[in-house]
Design a protein around this nucleic acid. Structure first.
Length: 747
DNA sequence: CTTAGGG
DNA sequence: CCCTAAG
């Protein structure tokens, strides 16, 4: 056992070796054999009392490395299973190196309560920290840009550029620019016109006097607004002065099926940007404010500086049938990987969430949330995933209380509330005792057209955790904060509608049905910006919503934060940020490939190869999707003990699993995990083991008795074959029987 | 932390 | 999927 571990460590730590042997799995196998990783071997050793062969293994590893690499490659490619092993990133590199380093350097997290930020405290506090630079408050982050980091960075860049253009084109294509009234224009023009033909036609069917837009629509509108919170707009102060004006057509329904869409990260892109030019400029890759470093900010169209009114044009049929919230991993984040990665790597978002193990596990490695902080120990571990998950688990109980508490707090922070006030009545402002308030809204209603017009003066943003070198400039700090905000708004944002303090969950209800009518006192209508996590039932019930109803005019603050020097000449900051960021996305991507490729036979080669560079959303299987989402998706389960959501294995995953098991054999689930599901953070080796168990069972029962997504018989056959083979091996207890996976495969 | 198994 | 005993 020990030897095994040691060897594994070596494997993971020795970058050089890793690099020399892309196909480390192969030689690792060998090592395992030597080190007696497999049961047979272990057993054999025990039986034969063979002394551990640590040295032997190690030496063998190096000596045979080359050979192994070659032969294994041949073997794998020839064996019918095209496991295009992507160059693996040594665990050591994937882990939270940055974090580890940070810790060692006595960095301190600098948490900005966005709320406060918005409330205008940011500058005071933020700058204060910088200025006073008490070692405690400032974290110095000095990451070394090792080759891996660079590599990753490059990859990220590439991908991003692709994404960007892709996204832009997407936008351009799907959303012919619609110009709509801007705030201040006559009632007619100020209506948010939803151009969805369906909606329109349906609208006709409805009583014009009915306020029937669905909540989803409302949400979309807000998402649109949120999107406006772009650097440009902020910089220009547009956001500040411009209250977002939304007018919901009295009779716009028919978005039902799109409802889930509102949770989709793609939402922001659906916003109709007023000036077409902007879109185009974006597509050209112009990055007004941030330059290349901040890609995510350029991922979607920005609102013109003028901060002109805009409208939401929501129609896109959603490809995501899954309620964006329920399946965070799969559905929600597809479109925004870049955002997530970028934003999250540097910003630790405190997602509320009493999410249990899941959430942390899903966070990107670069993420460090409060909760994570608590688990510091884990971060030093090379095996992040496992560690994390486990840690979570083990720590979970102990931290129940804490979690609960933080969860609540976070939730509060996570909500941005909106307040509506009759147009004529000035925005109502409640005491923001908590300072958590985020939004101030004004609602203007015109009974004449039955539109409920809302004007959002400001939003509260979820709490953010920001880390920045103490050598960073104030400007960079501002920039960072802005970025953080953007990350949230752009990627992990959801809008919740509160009515009378209660969350209105049914997106298909019309406003009228929900009791939100133009002639109602809308003071009870509120909106909340929430992390784009899977909104779990539990989280939806917050009776305390009222707390969020406080209204604070945060306009000013916002403006102040945003103006960060667009020209960030703070190499340090950027560098560190990038570093932190790059590995993340790279990892993700890499894993992506890994995953996609693993299934070799199954997934079309094209797909696989293309995928690497493909736009994020393309995620084929799903396991990967899951990986992404995790980042900003804090699954919140009020009940700490919430069971993990069930994620049925896709055929692709099954194939990957089968493939891995064929090669590694049963009983080495951790390796299987590493090999085939390294990126599927939601799949633990236990899960894989269980899956295999069920697969074996499934394979042995009649097709009629099988349930769920049918697994190709071919795979099941392989399962049985592999199972048989490996059990036999185990039975034989033959130590020196190398994995005859090939044999199996060739059979 | 991993595995193996039962639930 | 969860939980736990064992190693």
């Amino acid at each position: 056992m020990k030897q095994q571990k040691q060897l594994i460590k070596e494997d993971t730590m020795d970058n050089n070796i890793d690099k020399l042997t892309p196909n480390w799995c192969a030689w690792k196998n060998d090592n395992n054999l030597c080190s007696g990783t497999s049961h047979e071997q272990r057993n054999h050793r025990l039986l034969t009392k063979q002394p551990p062969c640590k040295l032997k293994a190690t030496e063998a590893k190096r000596k045979e490395m080359v050979f192994q690499k070659r032969s294994s490659l041949e073997m794998e490619s020839g064996g019918g299973s095209h496991v295009a092993e992507m160059p693996r990133v040594p665990k050591s590199a994937r882990g939270k190196r940055s974090i580890r380093k940070k810790e060692s350097q006595g960095q301190v997290m600098c948490a900005f309560d966005l709320l406060a930020t918005v409330a205008g405290k940011l500058l005071d506090e933020g700058e204060g920290s910088l200025g006073n630079a008490s070692p405690k408050d400032v974290r110095v982050k000095q990451e070394q840009c090792d080759e891996e980091a660079k590599h990753f960075k490059n990859e990220v860049m590439d991908q991003d550029s692709c994404n960007e253009s892709a996204l832009v084109s997407h936008i351009a294509f799907q959303r012919p620019v619609n110009h709509h009234g801007r705030k201040g224009e006559d009632p007619e023009g100020s209506h948010a016109v939803i151009e969805d033909p369906k909606a329109k036609s349906e609208a006709l069917d409805k009583e014009s006097s009915m306020i029937s837009c669905t909540k989803a629509e409302l949400g979309c509108n807000f998402a649109a607004i949120a999107d406006r919170w772009s650097p440009e707009s902020v910089e220009s102060g547009a956001f500040t002065g411009d209250a977002a004006a939304i007018a919901m057509p009295a009779t716009t329904s028919g978005f039902h099926k799109n409802a889930p869409d509102m949770y989709n990260l793609l939402d922001p892109m659906d916003v109709d940007v007023k000036p077409p030019p902007l879109v185009s400029s974006d597509s050209t890759g112009e990055m007004p404010l941030y330059g290349n470093k901040i890609r995510r900010s350029t991922s979607f169209p920005r609102v013109p500086k003028g901060g002109a009114g805009f409208t939401v044009d929501r129609d896109e049929d959603d490809d995501d049938k899954s309620s964006g919230c329920t399946h965070p991993s799969t559905a929600t984040n597809r479109g925004f990987r870049p955002n997530c990665t970028a934003g999250h790597s540097r910003v630790k978002k405190l997602l509320a969430c009493k999410h249990r193990k899941v959430a942390p596990a899903r966070m990107h490695k670069g993420d460090l949330s409060y909760s994570d902080v608590d688990r510091k120990p884990s971060f030093r571990n090379k095996k992040m995933y496992y560690t994390r998950q486990r840690t979570q688990r083990s720590t979970f109980k102990r931290r129940k209380m804490f979690d609960r508490h933080s969860a609540q707090v976070s939730e509060e922070y996570a909500k941005a509330n909106t307040k509506f006030a009759a147009r004529d009545s000035h925005a109502v402002s409640l005491e923001a005792n908590k300072g958590t308030n985020s939004t101030a809204f004004q609602k203007s209603q015109e009974s004449s057209d039955c539109h409920v017009k809302l004007r959002i003066k400001s939003f509260k943003v979820p709490e953010l955790l920001i880390e920045i070198p103490e050598t960073a400039t104030v400007g960079s700090l501002k920039k960072t904060v802005l970025e953080a905000v953007n990350a949230i708004l752009g990627g992990g944002l959801r809008v919740g509608v509160l009515h009378h303090g209660k969350k209105v969950r049914d997106d298909n209800k019309t406003l009228m049905q929900a009791g939100i009518s133009h002639d109602e006192v809308l003071d009870n209508l509120g909106f909340s910006l929430e992390p784009n996590c899977a909104p779990h039932p539990s989280q939806l019930s917050p009776p305390e919503d009222n707390e969020f109803m406080e209204t604070v005019d945060t306009t000013e603050p916002l403006a102040r934060i945003a103006p960060a020097d667009s020209s960030s000449k703070h190499g340090e900051v950027d560098a560190s940020q990038e570093l932190a960021l790059a590995p993340l996305s790279a990892n993700y991507q890499g894993s992506d490939h890994d995953f996609v490729h693993s299934p070799g036979g199954m997934s079309s080669p094209d797909k696989a190869s293309t995928n690497s560079r493909a736009i994020v959303p393309v995620t084929p299987a799903d396991s990967n999707a899951g990986a992404i989402v995790p980042a900003n998706k804090a699954k919140r389960s009020p009940e700490q003990g919430q069971r993990r959501i069930r994620r049925p294995f896709s055929v692709a995953e099954v194939e990957a699993l089968v493939l891995a098991v064929e090669k590694l054999g049963t009983g080495r689930w951790r390796d299987v995990k590493l090999r085939a599901f390294d990126n599927a953070k939601h799949r633990t080796y236990v899960d894989l083991k269980d899956k295999w168990k069920t697969l074996v069972h499934t394979a042995s029962i009649s097709p009629q008795q099988r349930r769920g997504e049918p697994v190709p018989q071919e795979l099941l056959d392989r399962v049985l074959a592999a199972q048989a083979y490996w059990s036999q091996q185990q039975a034989k207890l033959q130590p020196k029987t190398p994995p005859l996976a090939e044999a199996l495969l060739l059979t």
